[in-house]
Design a protein around this nucleic acid. Structure first.
Length: 863
RNA sequence: GGGCGAUUAGCUCAGUUGGUUAGAGCGCUUGCUCGACACGCAAGAGGUCGCAGGUUCGAAUCCUGCAUCGCCCACCA
């Protein structure tokens, strides 16, 4: 088999030798190392705010499993960061690790087989007995031992994440990393908290709170989700002075906690009862009948029992109607041991200590016996509130918690949201829906171990009572942060006064994970610790995140920024979509269809995976699609081969677009300029997918049509000047395409760039329309020359294909019938078309309708 | 109950202010080893643009209603 090798002259003139057989293998390791060594992505902190583009990178939960969705959305952000960098911005692109909160605690519990117990003393010599595969029965250890394990494990997890991100080619500045539990983050969270307390934007309150009985902590409205659950309407008889009143309830076990009945003020059926009392069945408590507009006449019997507390409506009624409290559910979800005052102790004794579920069965049985249950319970399914990570329904218990004001600031928060440009724009509606639907302030305290503590102590009076009032509260000074009130001593006290009468006690709670994540811009910008840096990066340019956490992370960040700075925290918020199974269902672990990201990268190559991710338009849910990755891989290989070929012809020699003289080449240059304009506009609108798609389409056309068209001329078939025009055009297009692809395919583009240029392509400038001006003006070009040339070349190809003949078959005569204008355009490209198509002779004829007749050489002639 | 998306070829999706025969890739069919690339090249088949009305010279695109799917929110006795 004959194959021509590159001539010695070409090789000698090469600035860099081209590989004989280019490959994608090993590019991730090779270029990842170079970028790291050369500091390609380091932030230049001497830049002013105007010169900076800053990204508020989402800190992934390191204790969670690595998911394909991470790779997907972080790639989107990376393409934008790379575009900004090439556009001349000093890019501030940090990386955070969310090692805060419950996911970490859970993972530590399972991994080491331990459980935290605040009552145990710290044991510095203690060592875990298990690492992975820990048994179910867990060893209780002190809070501090537990936290040490959290830190140990998250450090390991962070390494796994970082290696994945590097492999994926994120252009993160790896000197700018943070963890949501590190000292800096703790200091920023605590400082932001203290300032909100001092401005009365945060406050402590003992009140009914949504409570997870398994995690034994308060949870916030934002962490709730509804789940359809089976239940049943139980019709109960309350005893009035004249007659029984019937209510329907799904929670008969709360009967002992009933404090009133309520009906709508306009409900004539119950108006006579308002102001009177009725006696509860079984427990024999006299409760008032009240009127309230929230009561719905068409629901159940139209009159409801108010318990403390069955749901959030109960809390509203209880507060607005100023009802007494008769709590019966404890923090562990079991019925309290002692009956509330006035409740029949004998009946109560049956349910004391039982779970809610057990208590319900017992109460129903007792009601049945007493005849106060009317008929059989009617089964229904209804939505019940759950903590999003929980397994049992939430209860409402009274507890002391810290809150951040949000309800009163609704208007300001909406305004802040409108200062942000949303991508896609309709996502803003979700934010506004959420803000408008707020029904309480944001509860930020959690009764957990691993998290940022509240920098607060409380005085203990001489009777041993903790003083939670303003006077009794001791706030840490900002200079002392971060502090842990469990191990640090407040000013004016000594450690031996801890938890003693006349002494002090530390706030036992930690902040909700979102209370820390919500200051991510302040954390990465080192607010108050390095205000010189902060003012160069804040407010930030971009918050990328998933649309599922608009009500949590996005919302809470706006709350904090509004409270502290009075501005929106960023100019743009870009929402990425979900990753779905190939069958369009949301990917889930339980279905066993989760692909590990590292395996995905290794199998397909990072550029290919990035191509798949970047092909999805902003905010759109996307199927996991290896087919799309294969296309990306083919594209990357094509870039290798096309670059090798073009550089083989042009020698990699420097060229100038002033050498572009041939009409076909001028048309190509004009098209290239239009591409740059379009790709730039797309990127500026955060539509990376569009920029990629346009560039890709252009590239394949360039390879299949333009290169084929000018190949002969580039080899010198039409003389040196015509060849030089082709060389200059090929070089300009190749260089521009390499740059345009760089944000998407960073590995292969830096590889091909290195074949003929020095420095990383990622440090080069993004192409500009002004790059294609000659003497200050766009290149004079007739775009039709290229279009007609490609049309005619297509006809020649079709004729050969339809005849099932090889593309090298000669065309003895090509008759072109077309409009005068197109025939004229063809004349400008005639030599290239004939060369590329193997056309010996052309005849032209005018007509309004384009057509052609191609006469192919006889098969024998080909030989 | 309120809101937001989506619905275009077998599959995954473009279609940017309404404008000539609706596009791409994958898959499929038929061919082709021309001086880069078989992880390639060429050509081809394949769609009444969810349904029903309306506006317009002209609608995948604008308006109204409906259907299906998905998501967000909701005080759910």
């Amino acid at each position: 088999r004959w194959r021509r090798s590159p001539g010695p002259i070409l090789v000698a003139a090469m600035t860099t030798s081209l590989p004989e057989k280019p490959t994608l293998d090993g590019l991730e390791a090779k270029w990842g190392r170079v970028w790291d060594e050369e500091g390609t992505y380091l932030f230049d902190r001497s830049a002013t705010r105007e010169q900076v583009n800053s990204t508020d990178t989402p800190p992934p939960t390191v204790s969670g499993s690595l998911h394909v969705g991470h790779v997907f959305s972080y790639t989107h952000t990376d393409t934008i960061a790379r575009f900004q960098r090439m556009s001349g911005k000093k890019v501030f692109y940090p990386m955070g690790w969310d090692d805060n909160g419950l996911p970490t605690e859970r993972r530590v519990q399972n991994y080491f087989g331990v459980t935290g117990d605040a009552s145990l003393p710290y044991d510095p010599t203690w060592q875990p007995k298990h690492r992975g595969n820990a048994p179910k029965d867990r060893e209780a250890i002190s809070r501090r031992n537990f936290i040490e394990l959290c830190e140990e494990l998250t450090t390991e997890d962070e390494k796994v994440f970082e290696s994945l991100w590097r492999r994926l080619g994120l252009s993160v500045d790896w000197t700018q990393t943070y963890a949501t539990i590190d000292k800096n983050s703790q200091r920023v969270s605590q400082r932001a908290f203290l300032r909100m307390v001092n401005r009365d934007q945060a406050y402590q309150l003992e009140a009914p709170t949504l409570w997870d009985i398994d995690f034994q902590t308060a949870v916030a409205q934002a962490e709730l989700e509804d789940r359809e659950q089976p239940g049943a309407y139980h019709r109960l008889a309350f005893h009035g002075a004249d007659a029984d009143v019937f209510i329907e309830t799904t929670r008969p076990e709360l009967l002992a906690a009933c404090v009133a009945l309520v009906a709508h003020p306009d409900d004539e059926r119950y108006q006579p009862l308002f102001g009177k009392t009725v006696r509860t069945p079984l427990f024999g408590v006299d409760v008032p009948v009240k009127a309230h507009p929230l009561a719905q006449p068409d629901k159940g019997s139209g009159i409801a029992m108010i318990c403390t507390f069955g749901d959030t409506t109960d809390v509203t009624w209880w507060r607005e109607l100023q009802l007494p409290t008769r709590a019966i559910i404890g923090r562990n979800g079991r019925i309290l041991a002692d009956a509330p005052e006035g409740v029949n102790a004998e009946s109560y004794a049956h349910i004391a200590g039982k779970t809610v579920k057990q208590a319900q069965a017992i109460v129903v049985e007792q009601l049945r016996e007493s005849g106060e249950l009317i008929g059989d319970p009617k089964p229904i399914t209804h939505p019940v509130k759950f903590y999003e990570k929980g397994d049992r329904p939430l209860e409402i218990v009274t507890s002391r918690q810290w809150y951040v004001r949000t309800v009163l600031d609704r208007d300001a928060l909406i305004t802040r949201g409108r200062e942000v440009t949303w991508h896609p724009a309709y996502m803003r509606t979700r934010f506004e829906n959420w803000v408008e639907g707020l029904n309480g302030d944001w509860c930020i305290s959690r009764q957990r171990f691993f998290g940022v503590p509240f920098p607060v102590w409380y005085r203990i009076d001489e009777h041993g009572e903790i003083d939670h009032t303003d006077a009794g509260r001791i706030l840490a000074s900002e200079e002392s942060l971060p502090i842990d009130p469990q191990s640090h001593t407040p000013p004016g006290y000594t450690e031996d006064q801890r938890n003693k009468p006349g002494g002090f006690t530390g706030d036992p709670d930690v902040m909700d994970t979102w209370a820390t994540s919500s200051v991510s811009p302040q954390i990465v910008g080192r607010w108050e610790d390095d205000n010189d840096l902060f003012k160069r990066v804040f407010p930030m340019d971009l918050r990328p995140q998933g649309h599922d956490i608009i009500r949590t992370w996005l919302f809470s960040t706006v709350v904090k920024s509004n409270a502290e700075h009075g501005v929106a925290p960023w100019a743009n918020a870009a929402m990425s979509g979900w990753i779905l199974d190939p069958d369009r269902k949301k990917m889930s672990k339980s279905k066993g269809n989760v692909v590990t990201p590292m395996a995905m990268l290794e199998e397909n190559g990072s550029d290919a995976v990035r191509y798949w991710a970047a092909s999805a338009r902003p905010g759109v849910d996307t199927a996991y699609d290896t087919g799309q990755m294969k296309i990306g891989r083919k594209l990357a290989i094509k870039i290798l081969n096309a670059s090798k070929f073009v550089l083989g012809i042009t020698n990699g020699a420097p060229t100038s677009i002033t050498q572009v003289t041939t009409p076909v080449d001028r048309a190509m240059l004009a098209r290239l300029s239009a591409l740059v304009e379009e790709a730039t506009a797309a990127f500026e609108g955060y539509d990376y997918a569009r920029a990629l798609e346009r560039t890709e389409t252009f590239f394949w056309d360039f390879c299949d049509n333009y290169v084929e068209l000018v190949k002969g001329r580039a080899y010198g078939a039409q003389g040196p000047e015509a060849a030089s025009s082709a060389h200059a055009t090929l070089s300009a297009v190749l260089e521009t395409l390499q740059r345009l692809f760089a944000p998407f395919l960073p590995f292969v583009t830096d590889e091909v760039w290195s074949w003929w240029r020095t420095g990383s392509i990622h440090a080069q400038s993004w192409p500009k329309v002004s790059d294609f001006l000659v003497d200050g003006a766009p290149v004079a070009a007739d775009l039709a020359v290229y279009d007609v040339a490609i049309d005619v070349l297509g006809w020649v190809r079709r004729a050969k294909t339809e005849a099932k003949r090889s593309m090298k078959t000669a065309v003895t005569l090509l008759a072109i019938i077309d409009t005068p204008s197109r025939l004229a355009s063809f004349g400008e490209a005639r030599a290239d078309v004939c060369e590329a198509g193997g056309v010996a002779e052309v005849s032209l004829a005018e007509s309004d309708v384009a057509s052609y007749i191609a006469t192919l050489a006889a098969p024998d002639d080909a030989a």
